[in-house]
Design a binder for these strands. Structure first.
Lengths: 241, 241
DNA sequence: ATCCAGCATTGATCCAAATCAAGGCATGAC
DNA sequence: GTCATGCCTTGATTTGGATCAATGCTGGAT
Protein backbone atom coordinates (compact mmCIF):
# COMPACT_ATOMS: atom_id res chain seq x y z
CA UNK A 1 0.00 0.00 0.00
CA UNK A 2 2.83 2.33 0.89
CA UNK A 3 4.53 1.38 -2.32
CA UNK A 4 1.37 2.04 -4.21
CA UNK A 5 0.91 5.45 -2.69
CA UNK A 6 4.44 6.49 -3.54
CA UNK A 7 4.00 5.26 -7.03
CA UNK A 8 0.73 7.08 -7.46
CA UNK A 9 2.07 10.28 -6.01
CA UNK A 10 4.40 10.58 -8.92
CA UNK A 11 1.58 10.03 -11.33
CA UNK A 12 -0.66 12.57 -9.66
CA UNK A 13 1.94 15.27 -10.07
CA UNK A 14 1.68 14.69 -13.77
CA UNK A 15 -2.05 15.26 -13.97
CA UNK A 16 -2.60 18.67 -15.55
CA UNK A 17 -5.27 19.04 -12.91
CA UNK A 18 -2.61 19.33 -10.25
CA UNK A 19 0.28 20.75 -12.17
CA UNK A 20 0.46 24.43 -11.49
CA UNK A 21 -1.38 24.16 -8.20
CA UNK A 22 0.47 25.90 -5.39
CA UNK A 23 2.27 23.16 -3.50
CA UNK A 24 0.54 23.79 -0.15
CA UNK A 25 -2.89 23.65 -1.74
CA UNK A 26 -2.08 20.48 -3.59
CA UNK A 27 -0.69 18.88 -0.48
CA UNK A 28 -3.76 19.85 1.44
CA UNK A 29 -6.12 18.52 -1.21
CA UNK A 30 -4.29 15.24 -1.52
CA UNK A 31 -3.82 14.83 2.22
CA UNK A 32 -7.18 13.17 2.56
CA UNK A 33 -7.36 11.85 -0.96
CA UNK A 34 -7.00 8.17 -1.73
CA UNK A 35 -6.05 6.19 -4.75
CA UNK A 36 -8.19 3.13 -5.22
CA UNK A 37 -7.61 0.29 -7.59
CA UNK A 38 -10.83 -1.62 -8.22
CA UNK A 39 -11.64 -4.81 -10.11
CA UNK A 40 -13.98 -5.11 -13.03
CA UNK A 41 -17.62 -5.07 -11.98
CA UNK A 42 -17.26 -2.78 -8.98
CA UNK A 43 -20.17 -0.43 -8.37
CA UNK A 44 -18.73 2.97 -7.50
CA UNK A 45 -22.05 4.50 -6.52
CA UNK A 46 -25.77 4.06 -7.08
CA UNK A 47 -28.13 6.52 -8.65
CA UNK A 48 -29.80 8.47 -5.86
CA UNK A 49 -26.67 8.42 -3.69
CA UNK A 50 -25.39 11.73 -2.40
CA UNK A 51 -21.78 12.14 -3.54
CA UNK A 52 -19.14 11.61 -0.86
CA UNK A 53 -16.15 11.90 -3.13
CA UNK A 54 -15.09 13.44 -6.34
CA UNK A 55 -13.83 10.45 -8.28
CA UNK A 56 -11.15 10.98 -10.89
CA UNK A 57 -10.31 8.27 -13.38
CA UNK A 58 -6.54 7.79 -13.32
CA UNK A 59 -6.49 4.59 -15.34
CA UNK A 60 -9.18 2.50 -16.94
CA UNK A 61 -12.74 3.74 -17.17
CA UNK A 62 -16.18 3.89 -15.62
CA UNK A 63 -19.60 3.26 -17.12
CA UNK A 64 -22.55 5.43 -16.18
CA UNK A 65 -25.93 3.73 -16.29
CA UNK A 66 -29.44 5.07 -16.12
CA UNK A 67 -31.89 2.72 -14.45
CA UNK A 68 -35.65 2.73 -14.64
CA UNK A 69 -37.86 1.96 -11.67
CA UNK A 70 -38.62 -1.47 -13.20
CA UNK A 71 -34.94 -2.26 -13.37
CA UNK A 72 -34.17 -1.69 -17.00
CA UNK A 73 -30.72 -0.26 -17.38
CA UNK A 74 -29.03 1.64 -20.19
CA UNK A 75 -25.53 2.92 -20.72
CA UNK A 76 -25.46 6.69 -20.83
CA UNK A 77 -21.78 7.43 -20.90
CA UNK A 78 -18.37 5.84 -20.66
CA UNK A 79 -15.81 7.97 -18.83
CA UNK A 80 -12.19 7.31 -19.74
CA UNK A 81 -9.00 8.38 -18.01
CA UNK A 82 -8.19 11.08 -17.39
CA UNK A 83 -11.50 12.68 -16.43
CA UNK A 84 -13.70 13.60 -13.51
CA UNK A 85 -16.70 11.40 -12.81
CA UNK A 86 -19.82 13.57 -12.80
CA UNK A 87 -18.48 16.73 -11.17
CA UNK A 88 -21.99 18.10 -11.73
CA UNK A 89 -23.30 15.99 -8.85
CA UNK A 90 -20.33 16.50 -6.57
CA UNK A 91 -20.13 20.26 -7.00
CA UNK A 92 -23.84 20.81 -6.48
CA UNK A 93 -24.14 18.17 -3.76
CA UNK A 94 -27.16 16.77 -5.57
CA UNK A 95 -27.89 13.02 -5.76
CA UNK A 96 -26.34 11.12 -8.62
CA UNK A 97 -28.69 10.56 -11.55
CA UNK A 98 -26.70 7.56 -12.72
CA UNK A 99 -25.08 4.46 -11.38
CA UNK A 100 -21.33 4.09 -11.98
CA UNK A 101 -19.76 0.70 -12.63
CA UNK A 102 -16.29 -0.31 -13.59
CA UNK A 103 -15.99 -2.41 -16.77
CA UNK A 104 -12.29 -3.18 -16.41
CA UNK A 105 -9.69 -3.06 -13.66
CA UNK A 106 -9.26 0.66 -13.05
CA UNK A 107 -7.72 3.20 -10.73
CA UNK A 108 -9.43 6.20 -9.23
CA UNK A 109 -8.43 9.14 -7.15
CA UNK A 110 -10.99 9.90 -4.45
CA UNK A 111 -11.20 13.37 -2.99
CA UNK A 112 -13.68 14.16 -0.25
CA UNK A 113 -16.55 16.07 -1.78
CA UNK A 114 -16.42 18.97 0.65
CA UNK A 115 -12.67 19.34 0.22
CA UNK A 116 -13.03 19.23 -3.54
CA UNK A 117 -15.76 21.86 -3.51
CA UNK A 118 -13.68 24.09 -1.27
CA UNK A 119 -10.63 23.71 -3.45
CA UNK A 120 -12.55 24.45 -6.64
CA UNK A 121 -14.02 27.47 -4.91
CA UNK A 122 -10.63 28.80 -3.89
CA UNK A 123 -8.35 27.78 -6.71
CA UNK A 124 -8.94 29.21 -10.19
CA UNK A 125 -6.88 26.50 -11.85
CA UNK A 126 -9.04 23.80 -10.37
CA UNK A 127 -12.18 25.73 -11.20
CA UNK A 128 -10.94 25.97 -14.75
CA UNK A 129 -10.44 22.23 -14.96
CA UNK A 130 -13.86 21.57 -13.47
CA UNK A 131 -15.44 23.93 -15.97
CA UNK A 132 -13.68 22.18 -18.83
CA UNK A 133 -14.85 18.78 -17.70
CA UNK A 134 -18.41 19.96 -17.07
CA UNK A 135 -18.61 21.69 -20.42
CA UNK A 136 -17.29 18.69 -22.34
CA UNK A 137 -19.70 16.37 -20.56
CA UNK A 138 -22.62 18.69 -21.19
CA UNK A 139 -21.81 18.79 -24.86
CA UNK A 140 -21.60 15.02 -25.06
CA UNK A 141 -25.08 14.80 -23.57
CA UNK A 142 -26.44 17.32 -26.07
CA UNK A 143 -24.95 15.34 -28.94
CA UNK A 144 -26.54 12.19 -27.60
CA UNK A 145 -29.94 13.84 -27.37
CA UNK A 146 -29.69 15.05 -30.94
CA UNK A 147 -28.64 11.56 -31.97
CA UNK A 148 -31.67 10.04 -30.24
CA UNK A 149 -34.21 12.56 -31.42
CA UNK A 150 -33.11 13.19 -34.97
CA UNK A 151 -31.97 9.81 -36.20
CA UNK A 152 -33.30 6.31 -36.65
CA UNK A 153 -31.47 3.24 -35.43
CA UNK A 154 -29.58 2.48 -38.64
CA UNK A 155 -28.27 6.02 -38.86
CA UNK A 156 -27.19 5.89 -35.24
CA UNK A 157 -25.35 2.63 -35.73
CA UNK A 158 -23.68 3.75 -38.95
CA UNK A 159 -22.53 7.05 -37.49
CA UNK A 160 -21.35 5.28 -34.37
CA UNK A 161 -19.07 3.09 -36.49
CA UNK A 162 -17.73 6.03 -38.48
CA UNK A 163 -17.02 8.02 -35.32
CA UNK A 164 -15.37 5.00 -33.74
CA UNK A 165 -13.07 4.33 -36.67
CA UNK A 166 -12.11 7.98 -36.72
CA UNK A 167 -11.40 8.03 -32.99
CA UNK A 168 -9.32 4.89 -33.31
CA UNK A 169 -7.37 6.34 -36.21
CA UNK A 170 -8.21 3.43 -38.52
CA UNK A 171 -10.39 4.64 -41.41
CA UNK A 172 -10.86 1.11 -42.72
CA UNK A 173 -12.10 -0.50 -39.54
CA UNK A 174 -13.55 -0.02 -36.09
CA UNK A 175 -13.23 -2.25 -33.07
CA UNK A 176 -16.25 -2.24 -30.80
CA UNK A 177 -15.09 -1.13 -27.35
CA UNK A 178 -17.56 -3.29 -25.42
CA UNK A 179 -20.27 -5.93 -25.76
CA UNK A 180 -22.84 -5.32 -28.44
CA UNK A 181 -25.67 -5.43 -25.93
CA UNK A 182 -24.10 -2.52 -24.07
CA UNK A 183 -23.49 -0.50 -27.20
CA UNK A 184 -27.08 -1.10 -28.21
CA UNK A 185 -28.30 0.35 -24.93
CA UNK A 186 -26.00 3.32 -25.41
CA UNK A 187 -27.59 3.89 -28.80
CA UNK A 188 -31.09 3.51 -27.40
CA UNK A 189 -32.02 0.27 -29.17
CA UNK A 190 -32.25 -3.41 -28.29
CA UNK A 191 -29.42 -5.85 -28.89
CA UNK A 192 -31.53 -7.53 -31.59
CA UNK A 193 -32.02 -4.28 -33.44
CA UNK A 194 -28.33 -3.54 -33.18
CA UNK A 195 -27.50 -6.91 -34.63
CA UNK A 196 -29.96 -6.40 -37.48
CA UNK A 197 -28.67 -2.89 -38.13
CA UNK A 198 -25.14 -4.22 -38.46
CA UNK A 199 -26.17 -6.94 -40.86
CA UNK A 200 -28.31 -4.56 -42.89
CA UNK A 201 -25.32 -2.22 -43.16
CA UNK A 202 -23.54 -5.12 -44.84
CA UNK A 203 -24.88 -3.80 -48.13
CA UNK A 204 -23.54 -0.33 -47.35
CA UNK A 205 -19.88 -1.12 -47.19
CA UNK A 206 -19.15 -2.85 -43.89
CA UNK A 207 -18.15 -6.37 -42.89
CA UNK A 208 -18.78 -7.64 -39.38
CA UNK A 209 -16.49 -10.11 -37.67
CA UNK A 210 -17.13 -10.29 -33.95
CA UNK A 211 -16.02 -7.06 -32.33
CA UNK A 212 -14.17 -6.01 -35.46
CA UNK A 213 -16.03 -4.05 -38.10
CA UNK A 214 -14.31 -3.58 -41.42
CA UNK A 215 -15.31 -0.43 -43.24
CA UNK A 216 -14.87 -1.29 -46.89
CA UNK A 217 -16.56 1.80 -48.27
CA UNK A 218 -16.79 4.72 -45.87
CA UNK A 219 -18.43 6.90 -48.51
CA UNK A 220 -21.28 4.48 -49.06
CA UNK A 221 -21.70 4.08 -45.34
CA UNK A 222 -21.77 7.85 -44.84
CA UNK A 223 -24.38 8.11 -47.58
CA UNK A 224 -26.90 6.01 -45.67
CA UNK A 225 -26.30 7.42 -42.20
CA UNK A 226 -25.67 11.13 -42.81
CA UNK A 227 -22.91 11.83 -40.31
CA UNK A 228 -22.92 15.32 -38.83
CA UNK A 229 -19.95 16.87 -37.03
CA UNK A 230 -22.32 18.58 -34.61
CA UNK A 231 -23.50 15.17 -33.43
CA UNK A 232 -20.70 12.73 -34.04
CA UNK A 233 -17.47 14.61 -33.65
CA UNK A 234 -15.79 14.45 -30.31
CA UNK A 235 -14.64 17.82 -28.95
CA UNK A 236 -10.95 18.55 -29.12
CA UNK A 237 -9.01 18.76 -25.89
CA UNK A 238 -9.66 22.36 -24.99
CA UNK A 239 -9.29 21.81 -21.26
CA UNK A 240 -6.92 19.01 -20.32
CA UNK A 241 -7.79 17.50 -16.97
CA UNK B 1 -31.50 53.73 -25.38
CA UNK B 2 -29.87 55.78 -22.70
CA UNK B 3 -32.97 55.40 -20.60
CA UNK B 4 -32.94 51.69 -21.17
CA UNK B 5 -29.31 51.37 -20.16
CA UNK B 6 -29.86 53.23 -16.93
CA UNK B 7 -32.85 51.12 -16.15
CA UNK B 8 -30.99 47.91 -16.87
CA UNK B 9 -27.97 48.93 -14.87
CA UNK B 10 -30.03 48.86 -11.76
CA UNK B 11 -31.31 45.43 -12.62
CA UNK B 12 -27.87 44.05 -13.34
CA UNK B 13 -26.68 45.01 -9.90
CA UNK B 14 -29.34 42.74 -8.54
CA UNK B 15 -28.22 39.67 -10.43
CA UNK B 16 -26.53 37.35 -7.95
CA UNK B 17 -24.02 36.82 -10.74
CA UNK B 18 -22.71 40.33 -10.22
CA UNK B 19 -23.47 40.96 -6.60
CA UNK B 20 -20.31 40.46 -4.62
CA UNK B 21 -18.09 41.12 -7.61
CA UNK B 22 -15.43 43.70 -6.82
CA UNK B 23 -16.70 46.96 -8.29
CA UNK B 24 -13.75 47.48 -10.67
CA UNK B 25 -14.09 44.00 -12.10
CA UNK B 26 -17.81 44.40 -12.57
CA UNK B 27 -17.38 47.76 -14.20
CA UNK B 28 -14.79 46.31 -16.51
CA UNK B 29 -16.93 43.33 -17.45
CA UNK B 30 -19.98 45.44 -18.11
CA UNK B 31 -18.04 48.14 -19.95
CA UNK B 32 -18.36 46.27 -23.21
CA UNK B 33 -21.51 44.41 -22.32
CA UNK B 34 -24.83 45.26 -23.91
CA UNK B 35 -28.42 44.72 -22.99
CA UNK B 36 -30.53 43.69 -25.92
CA UNK B 37 -34.27 43.53 -26.06
CA UNK B 38 -35.39 41.27 -28.89
CA UNK B 39 -38.79 40.43 -30.36
CA UNK B 40 -40.33 36.99 -30.52
CA UNK B 41 -38.86 34.88 -33.29
CA UNK B 42 -35.36 36.30 -33.22
CA UNK B 43 -32.58 33.82 -33.93
CA UNK B 44 -29.79 34.48 -31.45
CA UNK B 45 -27.32 32.13 -33.10
CA UNK B 46 -27.20 29.12 -35.40
CA UNK B 47 -25.81 25.74 -34.60
CA UNK B 48 -22.25 25.60 -35.87
CA UNK B 49 -21.60 29.26 -35.06
CA UNK B 50 -18.60 30.06 -32.93
CA UNK B 51 -19.79 31.99 -29.87
CA UNK B 52 -19.07 35.71 -29.88
CA UNK B 53 -20.93 36.52 -26.69
CA UNK B 54 -22.00 34.94 -23.50
CA UNK B 55 -25.73 35.58 -23.52
CA UNK B 56 -27.53 35.89 -20.23
CA UNK B 57 -31.31 35.78 -20.08
CA UNK B 58 -32.45 38.77 -18.03
CA UNK B 59 -36.12 38.51 -18.90
CA UNK B 60 -38.11 36.12 -21.03
CA UNK B 61 -36.54 32.96 -22.39
CA UNK B 62 -34.73 31.26 -25.23
CA UNK B 63 -35.40 27.97 -26.97
CA UNK B 64 -32.54 25.72 -27.99
CA UNK B 65 -33.14 23.59 -31.07
CA UNK B 66 -31.28 20.69 -32.55
CA UNK B 67 -31.46 20.51 -36.31
CA UNK B 68 -30.75 17.58 -38.57
CA UNK B 69 -29.00 17.92 -41.88
CA UNK B 70 -32.35 17.40 -43.66
CA UNK B 71 -33.86 20.28 -41.75
CA UNK B 72 -35.87 18.52 -39.11
CA UNK B 73 -35.79 20.48 -35.89
CA UNK B 74 -36.49 19.52 -32.28
CA UNK B 75 -36.61 21.47 -29.07
CA UNK B 76 -33.86 20.40 -26.73
CA UNK B 77 -34.16 22.91 -23.95
CA UNK B 78 -35.93 26.04 -22.87
CA UNK B 79 -33.75 28.47 -20.94
CA UNK B 80 -35.59 30.83 -18.63
CA UNK B 81 -34.40 33.97 -16.85
CA UNK B 82 -32.15 34.17 -15.05
CA UNK B 83 -29.65 31.83 -16.63
CA UNK B 84 -26.67 31.66 -18.93
CA UNK B 85 -27.23 30.45 -22.47
CA UNK B 86 -24.92 27.52 -23.14
CA UNK B 87 -21.82 28.60 -21.22
CA UNK B 88 -20.37 25.24 -22.30
CA UNK B 89 -19.88 26.57 -25.83
CA UNK B 90 -18.71 30.04 -24.83
CA UNK B 91 -16.20 28.87 -22.24
CA UNK B 92 -14.66 26.24 -24.49
CA UNK B 93 -14.90 28.38 -27.60
CA UNK B 94 -16.42 25.40 -29.43
CA UNK B 95 -19.17 25.80 -32.02
CA UNK B 96 -22.73 25.79 -30.76
CA UNK B 97 -24.46 22.43 -31.08
CA UNK B 98 -27.89 24.07 -31.06
CA UNK B 99 -29.72 26.97 -32.57
CA UNK B 100 -31.18 29.52 -30.15
CA UNK B 101 -34.48 31.25 -30.86
CA UNK B 102 -36.59 33.57 -28.81
CA UNK B 103 -40.20 32.49 -28.28
CA UNK B 104 -41.38 35.70 -26.61
CA UNK B 105 -40.11 39.25 -26.29
CA UNK B 106 -37.03 38.91 -24.12
CA UNK B 107 -34.03 40.75 -22.82
CA UNK B 108 -30.46 39.51 -22.84
CA UNK B 109 -27.17 40.69 -21.51
CA UNK B 110 -24.36 40.17 -24.00
CA UNK B 111 -20.79 39.89 -22.79
CA UNK B 112 -17.96 39.45 -25.25
CA UNK B 113 -16.87 35.85 -25.13
CA UNK B 114 -13.19 36.58 -24.55
CA UNK B 115 -14.01 39.05 -21.77
CA UNK B 116 -16.34 36.55 -20.17
CA UNK B 117 -13.77 33.79 -20.32
CA UNK B 118 -11.14 36.05 -18.82
CA UNK B 119 -13.45 37.15 -16.05
CA UNK B 120 -14.46 33.58 -15.20
CA UNK B 121 -10.80 32.67 -15.18
CA UNK B 122 -9.90 35.45 -12.78
CA UNK B 123 -12.93 35.76 -10.55
CA UNK B 124 -13.91 32.83 -8.32
CA UNK B 125 -17.42 34.14 -7.80
CA UNK B 126 -18.06 34.16 -11.52
CA UNK B 127 -16.45 30.77 -11.90
CA UNK B 128 -18.75 29.51 -9.20
CA UNK B 129 -21.81 30.81 -11.02
CA UNK B 130 -20.64 29.32 -14.30
CA UNK B 131 -20.08 25.98 -12.62
CA UNK B 132 -23.55 26.07 -11.12
CA UNK B 133 -25.15 26.83 -14.45
CA UNK B 134 -23.11 24.20 -16.28
CA UNK B 135 -23.86 21.56 -13.69
CA UNK B 136 -27.59 22.24 -13.70
CA UNK B 137 -27.70 22.15 -17.48
CA UNK B 138 -25.72 18.92 -17.60
CA UNK B 139 -28.11 17.30 -15.19
CA UNK B 140 -31.11 18.40 -17.21
CA UNK B 141 -29.58 16.73 -20.27
CA UNK B 142 -28.97 13.52 -18.35
CA UNK B 143 -32.57 13.48 -17.18
CA UNK B 144 -33.75 13.98 -20.72
CA UNK B 145 -31.62 11.10 -21.98
CA UNK B 146 -33.00 8.80 -19.31
CA UNK B 147 -36.49 9.94 -20.22
CA UNK B 148 -35.90 9.14 -23.89
CA UNK B 149 -34.18 5.81 -23.38
CA UNK B 150 -36.17 4.34 -20.52
CA UNK B 151 -39.75 5.42 -21.23
CA UNK B 152 -42.34 5.14 -23.94
CA UNK B 153 -44.28 8.11 -25.25
CA UNK B 154 -47.26 7.80 -22.92
CA UNK B 155 -45.05 7.67 -19.87
CA UNK B 156 -43.10 10.68 -21.07
CA UNK B 157 -46.27 12.69 -21.61
CA UNK B 158 -47.80 11.69 -18.29
CA UNK B 159 -44.66 12.49 -16.33
CA UNK B 160 -44.30 15.74 -18.20
CA UNK B 161 -47.75 16.79 -17.03
CA UNK B 162 -47.09 15.77 -13.44
CA UNK B 163 -43.78 17.64 -13.38
CA UNK B 164 -45.41 20.67 -14.94
CA UNK B 165 -48.23 20.82 -12.43
CA UNK B 166 -45.73 20.49 -9.62
CA UNK B 167 -43.52 23.22 -11.02
CA UNK B 168 -46.53 25.48 -11.43
CA UNK B 169 -47.69 24.80 -7.89
CA UNK B 170 -51.12 23.58 -8.99
CA UNK B 171 -51.53 19.88 -8.20
CA UNK B 172 -54.90 19.74 -9.95
CA UNK B 173 -53.87 21.19 -13.28
CA UNK B 174 -51.02 22.03 -15.63
CA UNK B 175 -50.88 24.73 -18.27
CA UNK B 176 -48.80 23.83 -21.29
CA UNK B 177 -46.05 26.42 -21.62
CA UNK B 178 -45.94 26.36 -25.42
CA UNK B 179 -47.54 24.90 -28.54
CA UNK B 180 -48.20 21.19 -28.45
CA UNK B 181 -46.10 20.62 -31.54
CA UNK B 182 -43.11 22.08 -29.74
CA UNK B 183 -43.67 20.08 -26.58
CA UNK B 184 -43.98 16.96 -28.69
CA UNK B 185 -40.57 17.60 -30.22
CA UNK B 186 -39.14 18.20 -26.77
CA UNK B 187 -40.49 14.80 -25.72
CA UNK B 188 -39.14 13.14 -28.84
CA UNK B 189 -42.47 12.30 -30.50
CA UNK B 190 -44.64 13.73 -33.27
CA UNK B 191 -47.47 16.16 -32.65
CA UNK B 192 -49.95 13.44 -33.64
CA UNK B 193 -48.55 11.03 -31.08
CA UNK B 194 -48.64 13.74 -28.45
CA UNK B 195 -52.27 14.42 -29.23
CA UNK B 196 -53.12 10.75 -29.03
CA UNK B 197 -51.17 10.32 -25.80
CA UNK B 198 -53.14 13.15 -24.22
CA UNK B 199 -56.44 11.70 -25.30
CA UNK B 200 -55.48 8.20 -24.20
CA UNK B 201 -54.56 9.61 -20.79
CA UNK B 202 -58.16 10.76 -20.58
CA UNK B 203 -58.94 7.41 -18.98
CA UNK B 204 -56.14 7.90 -16.46
CA UNK B 205 -57.41 10.95 -14.70
CA UNK B 206 -56.82 13.97 -16.93
CA UNK B 207 -59.05 16.31 -18.91
CA UNK B 208 -57.65 18.31 -21.81
CA UNK B 209 -58.94 21.75 -22.71
CA UNK B 210 -56.61 23.55 -25.08
CA UNK B 211 -53.42 24.45 -23.25
CA UNK B 212 -55.00 23.64 -19.90
CA UNK B 213 -54.77 20.11 -18.58
CA UNK B 214 -56.87 19.26 -15.57
CA UNK B 215 -55.43 16.54 -13.40
CA UNK B 216 -58.45 14.91 -11.81
CA UNK B 217 -56.62 11.95 -10.33
CA UNK B 218 -52.88 12.38 -9.94
CA UNK B 219 -52.54 8.95 -8.34
CA UNK B 220 -54.07 7.18 -11.30
CA UNK B 221 -51.98 9.23 -13.66
CA UNK B 222 -48.82 8.40 -11.71
CA UNK B 223 -49.76 4.72 -11.83
CA UNK B 224 -49.60 4.60 -15.62
CA UNK B 225 -46.51 6.74 -16.12
CA UNK B 226 -44.25 5.79 -13.20
CA UNK B 227 -42.76 9.17 -12.31
CA UNK B 228 -39.22 9.08 -10.97
CA UNK B 229 -37.58 11.95 -9.09
CA UNK B 230 -34.26 11.14 -10.75
CA UNK B 231 -35.82 11.91 -14.11
CA UNK B 232 -38.65 14.35 -13.53
CA UNK B 233 -37.68 16.45 -10.58
CA UNK B 234 -36.08 19.78 -11.29
CA UNK B 235 -32.96 20.52 -9.24
CA UNK B 236 -33.32 22.97 -6.42
CA UNK B 237 -31.57 26.31 -6.69
CA UNK B 238 -28.16 25.34 -5.43
CA UNK B 239 -26.32 28.02 -7.37
CA UNK B 240 -28.35 31.14 -8.05
CA UNK B 241 -27.16 32.93 -11.17
C1' DA C 1 -69.10 39.42 -42.03
C1' DT C 2 -65.32 36.29 -45.10
C1' DC C 3 -61.06 34.52 -45.80
C1' DC C 4 -56.87 32.66 -44.51
C1' DA C 5 -52.90 30.83 -41.86
C1' DG C 6 -51.38 28.22 -38.21
C1' DC C 7 -52.19 24.80 -34.99
C1' DA C 8 -54.58 20.71 -33.41
C1' DT C 9 -57.30 16.52 -33.83
C1' DT C 10 -58.70 12.18 -35.81
C1' DG C 11 -58.66 8.29 -38.76
C1' DA C 12 -56.33 4.97 -41.90
C1' DT C 13 -52.32 2.88 -43.02
C1' DC C 14 -47.55 1.71 -42.84
C1' DC C 15 -43.26 0.73 -40.96
C1' DA C 16 -39.41 0.52 -37.69
C1' DA C 17 -38.24 -1.45 -33.84
C1' DA C 18 -39.64 -4.29 -29.82
C1' DT C 19 -40.80 -8.60 -28.29
C1' DC C 20 -41.00 -13.46 -28.27
C1' DA C 21 -38.75 -17.62 -29.33
C1' DA C 22 -35.27 -20.76 -30.92
C1' DG C 23 -30.61 -21.82 -31.89
C1' DG C 24 -25.63 -20.95 -32.46
C1' DC C 25 -21.17 -20.37 -30.84
C1' DA C 26 -17.95 -19.54 -27.88
C1' DT C 27 -15.66 -20.02 -23.12
C1' DG C 28 -14.86 -22.00 -18.80
C1' DA C 29 -15.99 -25.46 -15.01
C1' DC C 30 -15.74 -29.97 -13.84
C1' DG D 1 -14.80 -35.07 -23.07
C1' DT D 2 -19.90 -32.90 -21.22
C1' DC D 3 -22.42 -29.39 -19.53
C1' DA D 4 -23.46 -24.89 -18.34
C1' DT D 5 -23.42 -19.91 -19.08
C1' DG D 6 -23.17 -15.77 -21.46
C1' DC D 7 -23.43 -13.43 -25.57
C1' DC D 8 -25.00 -13.07 -30.09
C1' DT D 9 -27.81 -13.99 -34.22
C1' DT D 10 -31.88 -15.04 -36.79
C1' DG D 11 -36.70 -15.69 -37.62
C1' DA D 12 -41.70 -14.84 -36.66
C1' DT D 13 -44.86 -11.83 -34.84
C1' DT D 14 -46.61 -7.84 -32.57
C1' DT D 15 -46.96 -3.18 -31.63
C1' DG D 16 -45.85 1.59 -30.76
C1' DG D 17 -45.36 5.35 -33.08
C1' DA D 18 -44.68 7.59 -37.70
C1' DT D 19 -46.65 8.95 -41.78
C1' DC D 20 -50.25 10.28 -44.82
C1' DA D 21 -54.49 12.54 -45.40
C1' DA D 22 -58.55 14.94 -44.25
C1' DT D 23 -60.96 18.03 -41.31
C1' DG D 24 -61.70 21.23 -37.42
C1' DC D 25 -60.85 25.16 -34.76
C1' DT D 26 -59.26 29.82 -33.67
C1' DG D 27 -57.63 34.21 -34.21
C1' DG D 28 -56.26 37.69 -37.04
C1' DA D 29 -56.46 40.50 -41.43
C1' DT D 30 -59.29 42.87 -44.62
Amino acid sequence: MLDEMTYEDVELEELPLFRGLPAPRRTNLLRHAMVHGVPSGTVLFEQGDVPNFQLIVLAGSAHLFGRSTEGREVLIEAVRAPDLIIPAAVLTGAPYLMQARVPEPSRFLLIHAAAFRAAVEAEPLLAHAAIGSLAAQFRRMVRQIKNLKLRNSIERVGCYLLALSKRQGTPDRAVLPFEKTLIASELGITRESFSRALSSLGKSGIRVDGQMIEILDATRLAAVCAPDPLIDETDGEGFPI
